[in-house]
Nucleic acid binder design. Structure first.
Lengths: 213, 213
DNA sequence: TTGATTCGGAAACGGTCATTCTCTAAAGCG
DNA sequence: CGCTTTAGAGAATGACCGTTTCCGAATCAA
């Protein structure tokens, strides 16, 4: 049995890699977000990463593997951003609001035009194999479950109307988020999205609203 | 809609076309909806239309032109469906509700997995030329303006809260519709979408109503 | 009929795609 | 220093892409 590498890690044998993998993935990510999987050619990827086809195939088994790695990196980075966005809020409603506002931010302007790798991949999903499709489905489920748990938290702490159906509300807000990412591709202002967020959140407010039957 | 040829109009010279253009476009449409523009190859198009490359190029100037024609047909068909869906409703709120419910219908199940050509094209938009991009932008704007006018109608007839910002509400609901189309690609039930519609509509309801106590 | 015109279908075309190969460069090890 | 191993660069490869060409078939006008 080989012990895991000691703390003063020894370098792998052979010539060391001359570029940073995550930096390269960040370049590939932008291309996949802008152009989609099928719209991104290997020469696009080479241009965005500064690598040659040979180097890409030394590091990855193919375009599909580059996509999978870029997707996983995107998911991890976005996950951290989302957690950071909702962390300061102290109520369930506040966390939902912070989450929607953070989506308004990244869906607007230049960043919004880059698009979302998850949203874009969901649209392309019928051209993906099972592993790629599972990754996309899991990423969407993750956001929906997060929304659901924040909504239940708000219902428990009194900041969200206790009469709402949390699953229905979660799907509603998940749709808003995905819709932002689609519409953001055409270019929208942050203010417009923020106003839409404020309107969407009305449905959660516990104020003494009475609804016609 | 084919006009009967008037008596004085001559039939075009040469061998007549042996297939129906709109039927062929319907086949192409499904392929573009499922696979997107870049994911749809000409042989995919041939398979779905039953035509050969030669015949396609006799009828259209290229793949791009097939897409443009399919897109325009899709837009016209969907426009008619939407008008039919909201026509029976008699209030602004009722029309908005009918519109959202019709999107819940087409976003669910097998039909939902086919996807929306407008939504899919919006995601691919940064790979399109100006004419294609304009078509997509116009199609989205059209839905947003329709939502805005229905919301204003409801505010005028008292079925929608008069304090809402109609533009913000329109962008909110447009996002819900586009989000449905994205999430529908992964497969959702009609009931789940309908529940989400009900929740989204809470934000439009007038606040003060007699409520059975 | 004949000629003009357009369609349909198959094969062929150049280009680009993802991928592989080849050869050189850069590292650790003994 | 060789020896081994892996990275890098770019040319080569085969497949498929969108497109064009070619020719026989179908129609109308004369």
């Amino acid at each position: 049995m080989q012990m895991p590498r000691p703390q003063n890690a020894r370098r792998a044998p052979g010539r060391p890699r001359a570029f940073d993998l995550d930096t390269a993935l960040d370049g590939a990510l932008v291309v996949f977000r802008q152009r989609g999987y099928h719209g991104a050619s290997l020469s696009d990827l080479c241009g965005a990463t500064g690598l040659t086809p040979g180097s890409i195939y030394k590091a990855f088994s193919g375009k599909r593997a580059v996509f999978l790695a870029a997707f996983e990196r995107y998911r991890a980075v976005r996950d951290a951003e989302i957690r950071a966005a909702i962390e300061p809020a102290e109520t369930g409603f506040g966390k939902v609001e912070a989450l929607l506002r953070s989506y308004a931010d990244i869906s607007a302007g230049r960043e919004g035009r880059f698009g979302c790798l998850v949203t874009g991949s969901a649209v392309e999903i019928s051209t993906f194999d099972a592993e790629m499709a599972d990754g996309v489905g899991a990423a969407i489920d993750r956001i929906e479950r997060l929304l659901g748990s924040l909504i239940r938290e708000g219902m428990a702490d009194g900041t969200i109307d206790s009469s709402v159906d949390p699953d229905a509300a979660a799907l509603h807000l998940l749709s808003v988020l995905q819709g932002f990412r689609v519409i953001g591709k055409l270019g929208r202002s942050r203010d417009a999205f923020l106003a839409a967020v404020d309107h969407a959140l009305i449905a959660l407010r516990p104020e003494t609203r009475t609804h016609p039957s």
